[in-house]
Nucleic acid binder design. Structure first.
Lengths: 269, 269
DNA sequence: CGAAATTTTGATCACGTTCAACTTCAGTGG
DNA sequence: CCACTGAAGTTGAACGTGATCAAAATTTCG
């Protein structure tokens, strides 16, 4: 059984959230999609980060059923949230990309409801939930940004429910590929109509509720119909609009948090 | 096409969040599962509520693709979040129970990603997202409570993904019934091992990604195996532990928000 | 290089959909 | 009071999709 939790004392502390973090760090980038952060906010955020953790491919980061109370901001690398069932089947609930938070939602529950496994080598920035909550009390914009992230998470899950429940296998796969592409675009590591798929067909099948052979055939079908081109793991959409229409994909855009208007002025409006 | 949004001027304003709200209102009850609220907090919450809205059965509260920027706290009644697909199929993403928030997650996006329809007559307490956010800036505990609610929402969705993706129809249906039972228990309108199901088999089928006849047969199967008893819409679990084990149902318990420790003391710990 | 993981292809079959008919029941108006 | 309507639940027969199992081809990695 893989070890339960990250031991934050494993490694010497490295430079955390370097000065140019505003531009480079994918988590910060996502925060800034929702709220404006002052230099002082950056300092405060930097202060709650305990350590930077490298993680090896195939390591479990969170284990279903165990308590986990860290927030890990993914600096780079990929992971998957999944649940193993009694019958041996596995359902992948969502893919974790750079800028995502491992421990959202797991760390908010008394015990995690799913496991999270690294599907590539990763680098995480770790902080305790307690410290982050303290930050939220001091600077409510972080609490609101966190709400927005949680909402975005929920929205993605909702689309997965729709995919698996009622979309045909081709639509389903197309939709998932478009989702991944979109999320990679947001953090700036995909071009406008192509991306490198970091997941195997087995993972796709466990995410889509299909069998591996069927995912393979469905992938071929998308290729044959000219909706995608595949070279190794590099996926290109020859006509992005067309495939988005086909899969009914709408990028879910959680807007910005309304500005912190003083209550008094707001009541006048 | 049903009308887009609640017009908050339709009706004279009724008494909002009555004094005994602390005990009776299901939304307040859920908030208090996560944070402690002072009388002053109650006043502030009451102040952001614009109106109380009755809604008729079968009315759409939110329409997929349109902007919606209210938060509606469900006082009583039931609703369903769903998406209509091109092929005419419908996927229900989640059921909305008393104490839930219509507009979570819809109102946080530039345009709602799903529709919400009332499946019974309902009563809602409405406030604007903007006003609630202002409240969150002034009193961060509301922002954190909101985060916790969003996380809980995401957790429920994740279970739906697992249901639909990899659980057998019987497990799936059992799991959904247990989820509804559990959520009704939390707000105090279900007994320990029985509840009144507010949804039709057609809705269950659209939530589970199954056909209506199959839901019917699956329901019969659960009855035949003695896992549930059904009288009209009243469901009883003769052996709650057994069926929870069978469906691998774990009530997801989003704990309390860590107390607002002053930063200084926290660093000493 | 050898071993393991991943992708690809094929044949068979079970499960759940589809379609259709029928029942029951509540509400409504003649 | 009864006929009519529409919603909800129930049952059966036929069909098709996608799972399952198996094996080979290919790639990745230690």
């Amino acid at each position: 059984m893989p070890s339960l939790s990250l031991r934050t004392t494993d490694l010497p502390v490295r430079p955390l959230l370097p000065k140019e973090a505003g531009n480079s760090d994918p988590f910060v980038k996502r925060l800034q999609n929702h709220v404006s952060l002052t230099p002082s906010d950056f300092d405060a955020l930097r202060a709650v980060i305990e350590s930077e953790q490298p993680v090896k491919k195939r390591r479990d980061l969170v284990l279903d059923g165990y308590e986990f109370c860290k927030l890990c901001f993914v600096k780079d690398g990929y992971a998957a949230r999944y649940k193993l069932l009694r019958n041996g089947k596995r359902q992948i609930v969502s893919f974790v990309l750079p800028g995502d938070v491992v421990g959202l939602p797991g760390s908010f529950l008394d015990r995690a409801a799913q496991s999270v496994i690294a599907v590539s080598d990763m680098n995480l920035r770790v902080c305790s939930l307690e410290a982050f909550v303290a930050l939220c009390y001091a600077r409510p914009q972080f609490a609101l940004a966190l709400t927005w992230l949680a909402v975005q998470e929920a929205t993605i899950y909702a689309e997965h429910v729709i995919d698996i429940g009622r979309r045909s296998p081709t639509e389903r796969l197309a939709h998932l590929l478009l989702e991944i592409h979109w999320r990679l675009t947001v953090i700036g590591i995909a071009s406008e109509s192509a991306f490198d798929l970091p997941f195997t067909q087995e993972m796709l099948s466990d995410a889509l509720g299909l069998s591996v052979p069927h995912v393979n055939r469905t992938l071929s079908r998308l290729k044959a119909e000219g909706m995608i081109c595949v070279d190794e793991r590099h996926i290109t959409f020859p006509d992005l609009r067309a495939i988005r229409l086909f899969a009914q994909f709408q990028p879910a855009n959680p807007g910005r948090v309304p500005a912190p208007v003083p209550i008094r002025r707001q009541q006048m409006a």
